[in-house]
Amino acid sequence: MVGSTPLSVLNPFIIKKVINGCANEMEVRKLASDDLLIETVNLAQVKDLLKLCNFNCYDVEPKIPHSMNSCKEPEEAIEFFRRHSVLPSEVYCPDCQEPCKFRKDKHQWYCGRYKKYGKTKKRVQCSFCVSDYKGSFLDNTHLPAWQIILFINHWIQKFWNHDVIITCLKWSSKTSVDWRSFCSEVTLSWLQNQPPIGGPGIVVEIDETFFVRAKYDRGRDLRDVWLFGGIERVGKRFFLVPLVKGNQVLDRSAATLVPIIKKFIRPGSIVNSDGWAAYRQLADEGYTHRVINHKEVFVDPDDPTINTQTTERLWRDV
């Protein structure tokens, strides 16, 4: 029913319009806008499927026939996590130093090799066995993997709604709160441990953007935050750094930005930026620095490779 990847990504804020027949084609397409999860979608079939779901968009995944099998966890959801390195593709036995075999029915990796016991000719079987979920955020949870995917998809949406999770996924309030906190902790850990990007001859575009958000997502208490980031033009690896320290909002001076650049961009990189004064010393820091003056043009007419267009798409995604 859905392309080659049958995991559904549905926007609960558009779904009711689709069911009522008043959504346009663009809004229908937004129901499957995440390229990570869905490759192709038959819009007519999506509309028909939604009509069967009693306004509950999270019921759609179990209604996709290809996802229904005898496993407790739909294998498509498990394989999605595996493709994105949440679950391992291979495990090595710490005793035998050999790759383990995978038991799909129990979601376990086991060794099972026979080896000699001491100096005797007796052979014993290696008993090493580990859960497929060990060390991942699926460890010690009884929630189906497909529900976790749908929860994360909703969590990263612009408009978070706690009641949607409770109503649609049938989770308790405590479970929803715990998983939202957990996702926030994972995001914070990623921000604090991002690997450097770039390298000799690799083009990295850098830029800053300005965010205004309501504190705790409500009221009129606004906090203004600058976000600084960079992205490889070809490899698309990137880093993001909020210019805040505790409750203090940092400025965009060279004293603030240059140490961040040196931390997250490897020496020898070709750095494209606008004409902000804080970047002027990058040539002295081991980078090839190319500048585009955004007050005049966004792409250098003499050398079209000098631009920061990739960072604009990065801000759009953020």
Rank of each mutant, 00 (worst) to 15 (best):
G3F: 04
S4Y: 11
T5C: 14
S8A: 15
P12N: 11
V18D: 07
C22P: 02
A23C: 05
S33Q: 15
V41I: 15
N42W: 08
Q45N: 15
L49Y: 11
K51A: 11
C53D: 06
E73A: 07
P74F: 09
E79V: 00
P88L: 03
E98L: 13
K104G: 09
K106T: 10
G112D: 06
Y114Q: 08
K116G: 08
T120L: 02
V130Y: 00
G135Q: 00
G135M: 00
L150P: 04
I156Y: 08
D163R: 15
D163S: 14
K174S: 13
E185K: 12
T187A: 14
S189L: 11
P196F: 02
G199C: 03
G201M: 03
G201H: 06
G201E: 11
Y216F: 15
D224A: 12
V225Y: 12
W226V: 04
F228R: 10
I231G: 05
G246A: 09
L250N: 06
L250D: 00
S253H: 12
V258N: 05
K262M: 13
I265N: 05
V271P: 08
V271A: 11
T288H: 09
I292V: 13
I292M: 06
V299F: 05
N307S: 04
L314E: 02
D317L: 08
